[in-house]
Structures are given as structure tokens and as C-alpha cells.
Simulated scan of single mutants.
Amino acid sequence: MTKQLKLSALVAAMVLSASAFAAKPGYTADQSTDAVTRNNYGECWRTNFFDKATQGLVECGDAVAAKPAPVAPVYSKEKVTLSAEVLFDFDKATLRAEARNELDPLVNRLKNDRNLRSVEVAGHTDFLGSDSYNQALSQRRANAVKDYFVAAGVAAEKVVAVGRGETETKMTQECEAKKFKKRADLKACLAPDRRVEVTIETVKTVVQ
């Protein structure tokens, strides 16, 4: 009877030991807490079957903690279209006094945007006039808006001005098809082509 009890106790001990090993492969562990058993020096207690290549634990110094996932930048763009009719007199590149009503809200936004990456100010004209003249006019207008932004406190290194002249007109075909007899009517029809587009690029970050 005594031998049978000893045998049962031994089997039970082996089962508990196996359970402890299974909880933390390669280490002995407290079955109730699942914590690795440590010696008097605070070192993890490894079994004879310990394999550092496959069973090492970071908490025991046998493995290196996984590095955080790399962070990739994510960019977003928004285009704000401003009418040149509001910003400038016809065929001029000097900002009108009323232009501040359109530009100041943008200035405040750009100055306070910590994620601001870049601002592109693009000038556009209608097709009236020569290509070279329209190109130069659109550049002067873009420069005028850029200078306003920078003077108001937007970081100069983030703002670029480009003139696109009549290369991106939208109303030419439609307005010519109407065959206006008066040039003033044609000019009014083409108003949407005379514009300044402000493209705002911001950067955000996400974990891959």
C-alpha cells in the first residue's frame, strides 16, 4: 500500500512538472501563476531540455524583444481654388485690398498646422493673349500670393509659386462655342479659368 501511494505521488509530481514545463517550454514555472521559477540570484530556472533558439524568453534574457513596427509617413493633399477676379484686377498681378478676406483664413490655417509639409500656389489664366504673356502673368500672380503668405508668417521654405498660364484652362471650348459678339461677354464666360489654386500637403504617420 505504501509503495502504491509513493508511486501515485510520483506520477502526480511528474504530471505537475510536465504542466509547468508546458506553460513555459524550456523553463520550470509556477503552475498557479504561470511565472518562471527563479533561483536565489533572480535567474530563470531552465530545464535540461532548454533550447535558446526556440524557447528563449525576453524576460529571462534569452531572447531579444521584437522591435516596434516601422512608422511610414502618409501624405494627404487638398486643393483650394481662389478666383483671380477677387484677388486681382483684370490683367494685373497686384493683390486687391479685398484679397485679404480670401487669403487670411488660409494664412491662419497654414501657420497653425503642425503637420504642414508644403504649399503650392499655382497661377492660371484664360486663353486670351499670347502664351508667353499668360505664362508670365500667371507666375506674377502666384508670386504675389506666395509673398502674402510668407509675409504673414507661413514658413517660406514650405511655399512654392508656379505659373501655369493657359495650359490648364477649362472653359475655352465651351465659351468659344457660344460665339459671343462682345469681348466682355467672352471674358466673363472665361472667368473660372482665371484662378489661383493653393494645394496644401500635410503629413501624418501610421504604424504599418
Score class of each variant (00 low, 15 high):
1 M>G: 03
2 T>R: 11
4 Q>N: 05
5 L>S: 01
6 K>H: 01
6 K>P: 05
7 L>E: 05
8 S>T: 11
10 L>V: 02
12 A>S: 01
12 A>H: 01
13 A>E: 08
14 M>D: 12
14 M>I: 13
14 M>Y: 08
14 M>N: 14
14 M>H: 13
18 A>C: 04
19 S>C: 11
19 S>M: 14
20 A>W: 07
22 A>Q: 10
22 A>M: 05
25 P>G: 04
25 P>D: 08
27 Y>H: 12
28 T>E: 06
33 T>D: 02
35 A>R: 07
35 A>N: 13
36 V>R: 04
37 T>S: 11
37 T>G: 06
38 R>W: 04
39 N>M: 15
40 N>Q: 11
41 Y>G: 15
42 G>L: 05
44 C>V: 04
45 W>N: 15
45 W>F: 13
47 T>L: 11
48 N>V: 10
49 F>Q: 12
51 D>T: 05
51 D>E: 12
54 T>H: 04
57 L>C: 02
57 L>G: 03
57 L>E: 03
60 C>K: 00
60 C>D: 06
63 A>K: 15
64 V>Y: 06
65 A>E: 15
66 A>L: 12
68 P>V: 14
70 P>S: 09
70 P>V: 11
71 V>F: 07
72 A>K: 09
72 A>C: 01
73 P>S: 07
74 V>W: 00
75 Y>D: 14
76 S>N: 08
77 K>S: 07
77 K>V: 01
77 K>Y: 09
79 K>Q: 02
81 T>E: 14
82 L>Q: 06
83 S>T: 05
85 E>N: 03
85 E>M: 02
88 F>S: 09
90 F>L: 14
90 F>C: 04
94 T>D: 15
96 R>K: 15
97 A>Q: 11
97 A>T: 05
97 A>H: 07
97 A>N: 07
98 E>R: 09
99 A>G: 09
99 A>K: 02
100 R>G: 10
102 E>V: 11
102 E>D: 13
103 L>D: 01
104 D>Q: 10
104 D>C: 00
105 P>S: 08
106 L>D: 12
110 L>Q: 07
113 D>S: 10
113 D>P: 02
116 L>H: 08
116 L>F: 07
117 R>L: 12
119 V>G: 06
120 E>V: 04
120 E>A: 14
121 V>T: 11
121 V>S: 01
123 G>D: 03
123 G>V: 05
124 H>F: 14
125 T>Y: 02
126 D>Y: 03
126 D>R: 05
127 F>S: 14
129 G>T: 11
129 G>W: 13
132 S>H: 09
134 N>P: 11
139 Q>S: 14
140 R>F: 02
143 N>G: 12
144 A>V: 08
145 V>D: 00
146 K>C: 08
147 D>C: 01
148 Y>N: 00
148 Y>V: 08
148 Y>I: 04
149 F>G: 08
152 A>R: 05
157 E>R: 07
159 V>Y: 03
166 E>R: 08
166 E>F: 08
169 T>K: 10
171 M>D: 09
172 T>G: 10
173 Q>H: 00
174 E>T: 15
175 C>P: 05
179 K>W: 04
180 F>L: 06
182 K>P: 10
184 A>T: 13
185 D>N: 13
188 A>Q: 14
190 L>F: 11
191 A>E: 14
201 E>F: 04
204 K>Q: 12
205 T>C: 01
